[in-house]
Design a protein around this nucleic acid. Structure first.
Lengths: 248, 248
DNA sequence: CGACATGTTGAACCTCATCAACCGACGTGG
DNA sequence: CCACGTCGGTTGATGAGGTTCAACATGTCG
C-alpha cells in the first residue's frame, strides 16, 4: 500500500483534478483516506444501477461510461481521461456501467470521507460543480453528433476529439503543426458503441479517411493525422461550402 | 412591473425551483431583483454563443435548447419545463440557442445579483449543482435514444417522457390509470429536431402508433395514450422478449 | 380569395445495419 | 513444431429503415 501523502505528492494530476482546490492541510486529510488502484483494461469498476461506495480521480488511462438497453444494445456515453472525476454526488446508485478501456490508474476516495471533505470545503464543491457543467456541455455536443452527423463525420469528430485532447495534454505542436499522432484508446467495437454505429461501418469510415489521405495508420491503434483541416471539414465542424446562417 | 415579493409569493414554482432553497429573508433579496417576463412562442431568448446577462427560472411553458451545425442541421438538446433553471454558471457565453417552444413565463435574475446570492448561500449552490447533475443524467439517457433507438422507439420514448412529466406535475392517475392525455409542446419539425429524425418520419411513426392502438389523436397536438404498457414496450424500455443480460 | 405555414402521404434513393466470409495475430495444446 | 480455436479487424453482398423530394391537404391570416 502506498502511503497517502506520498501518493498525492507524486500525483501527476494533482493540480488539474478536483483535489487541486485543496490546500496542504486539506490534502493531507484526503490523502489519509485516498488509495491508488491499478485496473487492467476490460475490468468493470461498477455495474449499471449498482450503488457505488466511492469516488475516484482518473490518474492515467481511459474509463468508459456505458448505458445499455434491456435487449443488449449499448452506447458509451462518456470517456474519462486523466484528470477526470468518477462518481455521482447526491445519488447512491448510478445509471452507468464504468469499465476500464485501457489499463487505468485511479485514486479512490471512500464515499463518506470524501463527502465530509466536500461539505467542509467550498473550493472542492466548486470544482466538482464546474466539472459536471463541463460534462453536461460535452454530453450535449455529443448528442448533436449522435443525432445529426453521418458516419464519416462521426468518426472524424471522434479523431479530432482525441487529437484535441492529446494536444491539450502534451502541449500543442506549435504553429509548425507536425502531424499529430494519436493512439486509439478503444477497439473498433468500442468506437462503434461510442459513435452509435457498428464495427463494420467504423472500419469502412477509417478506410475512407485513409483513402482521402486525411489520416494514415501504421498499427490498428495508431492514427497519424495527415491533414488536420480536412479532418475538421470531414467532421462537419466547418461547412465545406459557404456557412449558412439560419434565417431568423 | 410586478413588485418583487408579490411575484415570489404567488409563484407556482416557489418550492420546486432553485429558489426553494432560500429562506424568507434571502428570498426578499432575490425578489428585489427578480422580474417576471412573458415570452411568446417562437421567441428566441438568446442565440448560440451569445453571452447571457441573466439567469432565469421557467415558471410556465416550455423552452428548447438547440445546437446547430454550420450547415444548418440542428438538434434540440434539452427541453426546459416548469421548475427548471436556465443559465450556465461559470461561463459568460453559452453554447446553446434558447427558444420559447410554447408561450412561456420566466422569472429573470440579473447575472451579478444572482451570482452574489449564490456565493452567499450554500443551499442555493447545492440546488443548482443537483440540477446540473440531473440534467447530465437526462442528457446521457437521451444520448442512448439518439444513438441506438429506432424511429418508433424514439417517438414512443418521447411520448412516454412527456406523459411521465405531466403525471409528475398533475399527480399520477391513481392505480385505476385512466388514459393520460398529453398536449405536445412541440410542432412536428421540433419533435424531429429533438429526436434526430425528419418531420416525415415523425409523422409516419405517429401513424404507426395510432394504427397499433397505442395512442389516439384528436387534435394534431393532443395525444391520448390508450395503452401505456404497449407504449413502454414500443419505447424499448423493457424487452418484448426475454431480457438479455450481457454476459460478463 | 390567395399566400403561407404546418402536417400528411407517396415514391425513389441512399446510408448504414446485417449477415457472412475471411484474414492475421495470438495463445494453447498435441 | 504445427494444428487449432479464438479474437479483433477487414471486406463484400444484401436489405431495411429513414431521408429526400414531391405532391397534396388543412388551417390561418392578410
Amino acid at each position: 500500500m502506498l502511503e497517502g501523502m506520498q501518493c498525492c505528492g507524486t500525483c501527476p494530476v494533482r493540480h488539474q483534478a478536483v483535489c487541486g482546490a485543496l490546500d496542504h492541510r486539506q490534502l493531507q486529510r484526503l490523502a489519509a483516506v485516498a488509495r491508488r488502484r491499478k485496473i487492467a483494461a476490460g475490468q468493470i469498476l461498477f455495474m449499471e444501477l449498482e450503488p457505488i461506495g466511492s469516488y475516484a480521480n482518473v490518474v492515467s488511462g481511459v474509463i468508459k461510461l456505458t448505458k445499455s438497453l434491456p435487449d443488449g444494445r449499448q452506447l458509451t456515453v462518456a470517456l474519462l481521461f486523466a484528470p477526470d472525476f468518477l462518481g455521482r454526488a447526491y445519488s447512491s446508485d448510478n445509471p452507468y456501467r464504468a469499465e476500464a478501456a485501457t489499463d487505468v490508474e485511479i485514486c479512490v476516495f471512500p464515499k463518506t470521507a470524501f463527502e465530509k471533505l466536500v461539505a467542509d470545503h467550498p473550493g472542492l464543491r466548486e470544482r466538482l460543480f464546474r466539472r459536471s457543467l463541463d460534462e453536461l456541455d460535452a454530453a450535449r455536443r455529443w448528442m448533436v453528433l449522435l443525432g445529426k452527423k453521418t458516419a464519416t463525420e462521426k468518426l472524424a469528430s471522434f479523431l479530432y476529439f482525441l487529437a484535441e485532447g492529446s494536444i491539450q495534454r502534451c502541449g500543442k505542436p506549435a504553429s509548425g503543426q507536425q502531424a499529430p499522432v494519436i493512439e486509439l484508446p478503444l477497439s473498433r467495437v468500442e468506437i462503434a458503441d461510442y459513435l452509435g454505429l457498428t464495427t463494420e461501418t467504423v472500419c469502412r469510415q477509417f478506410h475512407r479517411l485513409r483513402v482521402k489521405k486525411v489520416i494514415e495508420m501504421d498499427n490498428k491503434r495508431l492514427v497519424v493525422i495527415r491533414d488536420m483541416t480536412q479532418l475538421v471539414i470531414a467532421a462537419g465542424f466547418i461547412g465545406a461550402g459557404p456557412i449558412v446562417r439560419p434565417a431568423m
